[in-house]
Design a protein around this nucleic acid. Structure first.
Lengths: 162, 162
DNA sequence: AATTTAAGAGTTATAATATAACACAAACAT
DNA sequence: ATGTTTGTGTTATATTATAACTCTTAAATT
């Protein structure tokens, strides 16, 4: 099973997801000579606690527990950094943030978001992404950033396992 | 030139857009036995003053001027109605609303949004829309609503006519 | 036409999301 | 060791959206 499908399969070894994401982030920051500070790490780790996108304010308690300042700017700064580095994505339909499973490859993610269990998976669909860009260019428009988000019902919830 | 391109062409007869949108809305509401109230009409008309998506709070002054209540719920109710009827779309990347140029045909719009002049056009791309749905179904996911938004630079702004 | 019902709008308050601005501290570069 | 940049602390506030309740007006029913 591809990693993209894992999120809709509750019995997957999720601790693996978390560790993998943190390792990726660490090495990526090292490569780019960026500081993977405790706050940034904690925010990323908290986001990765599940495959459900989290709002910025849902991340604050984790910061508070760990003894950090837990005012909004702290978490938004960390989120800005993580987004710039492609480590998390913002789901604009939900005003929420989710970890990126393959941050090193630059990409435009598209997302399948279950309206029932709130899990979201990032789907790699270069062909769609390219088609969208081509369509834009047909209008003389230069595409710079794209957002593809699909709301619906995931396989688990279709089986009644919300 | 197709109507979709008009928005990026400032010299188009925009008053035609407005009138056309209002006529469409009127007849659509009549068909569906819905009330196209003065508030709803005014909100739609105000949205159609330009091809730039407007935030809910930017619509309030027009209501106030016309002597209506101008508290947020008033405009959000009108927007909810207009969205349900497909007369306006919400651009989630901007938290803003834009008129739909072809409300009678049910569709999933995709949007090209210029980061410079803020104009946005709705692009009909059934093939892309279908591809996105197919991709979702490949994961066993039932797609119910999709949002495709592209930020970039429009033709006019490439020529320096912001 | 009078009465009931439902839909729309008025009003107040507040929730949820996000950012501005400035002070302070730690890391890094020279 | 010193200056500079980057990250964080802190306070305040901006922006977007909704809850809850009242009142009015239009529509449906008798």
């Amino acid at each position: 099973m591809s990693d993209s499908q894992l999120a809709f399969t509750p019995e997957h070894d999720h601790s693996g997801c978390i560790e993998h994401a943190l390792m990726d982030a660490r090495s990526l920051c090292e490569e780019r000579n960026l500081r993977f500070t405790p706050i940034r790490e904690l925010v990323l780790k908290t986001i990765w606690q599940s495959h459900k996108p989290l709002g910025a304010y849902e991340l604050l308690p984790a910061l508070a527990e760990a003894g950090f300042n837990s005012a909004p700017p702290t978490v938004y700064r960390a989120l800005d950094f993580l987004q710039e580095q492609g480590l998390v994505h913002r789901i604009s339909l939900l005003n929420a943030f989710i970890g990126c499973p393959h941050p090193s490859t630059s990409h435009e993610g598209s997302f399948l978001i279950c309206r029932h269990c709130n899990n979201a998976v990032e789907v790699e669909a270069p062909s769609i992404s390219n088609e969208v860009n081509k369509q834009a260019e047909r209008f003389g428009f230069i595409p710079e950033q794209q957002s593809i988000e699909v709301l619906g019902t995931c396989p688990e919830c279709q089986r009644g396992n919300a």
